[in-house]
């Protein structure tokens, strides 16, 4: 017998003995989750405000931009302020065109890249799958955000999102992933909630432990 079979045999034998369900039977419905979980408001406006408040508490920067022109201007301001030399992005059309417009030395991860060079980039500019109001989370996948490293290795992660990408809560984000990728999931799905941080030294929060020190979310209004 293989070890797999051994383990399954032990599990099956163990489960012959029934345990007492002290806290009830059956998997809870998503509706039951929603009744206990943090409230998210009803209207889109409420949820946008919730997202903005959460992002600010998480020390992420969240900004609305009216249109693509304003987005480009905002990126220019950031680039100048932080003196970006090198940028990285992916083939998502908006992220790609906006990054190229900055006129910096640029890596496009989907075309193949050198890890050491990506590490030197001042910024990684990506798109995303969703923004989650409940927790101020940005949902990215290796499909939507140019692979695994782009949203984590450069020291500043800039997310370009669209107002219509806002979802109310975590269950909604998860069912969105299931619908969008069903049967063909990206190999990485990441719920990003604020810039990287650690509290391992005297429980004092330091941003940028290993991942990005800054997270900026630029949200297109229309």
């Amino acid at each position: 017998m293989s070890e797999r079979d051994n383990i399954f045999a032990r599990i099956k034998e163990a489960l012959m003995l029934k345990a007492h369900a002290s806290h009830g039977h059956g998997l809870p419905l998503v509706e039951e989750h929603r009744r206990v979980m943090p409230p998210v408001g009803v209207t889109i406006e409420e949820q946008l405000t919730l997202f903005a408040n959460n992002a600010s508490e998480l020390k992420a920067t969240f900004k609305f931009v009216k249109d693509v022109a304003e987005l480009a201007a905002e990126l220019k301001v950031l680039s100048a302020a932080e003196q970006w030399q090198r940028a990285a992005t992916h083939t998502g059309s908006l992220a790609h065109s906006q990054t190229m417009a900055l006129g910096l030395a640029t890596i496009v991860t989907n075309y193949g890249y050198d890890k050491d060079e990506l590490e030197l980039c001042d910024v990684g500019i990506t798109e995303c799958d969703a923004l989650i109001a409940q927790t101020g989370t940005v949902l990215v996948t290796s499909h939507s955000a140019g692979g695994r490293a782009l949203s984590c290795l450069p020291s500043h992660h800039v997310v370009i999102a669209h107002r219509s990408q806002l979802v109310a809560d975590l269950p909604e984000a998860m069912s969105l992933v299931k619908q969008r990728y069903s049967g063909n999931y990206p190999s990485m799905i990441s719920f990003i909630t604020g810039p990287s941080r650690t509290g391992d030294i005297e429980r004092i929060i330091v941003l940028g432990a290993h991942g990005p020190k800054r997270l900026t979310i630029l949200c297109l209004q229309n």
Partner: peptide, 21 residues
């Protein structure tokens, strides 16, 4: 915390068409 910074699901090695992994 309300949610930790990264909650990430992995379902395989680099898939066709993915940039890295």
């Amino acid at each position: 915390q309300a949610l930790t910074c990264y909650n990430t699901q992995y379902g395989g090695p680099r898939q066709p068409g993915e940039a890295d992994g």
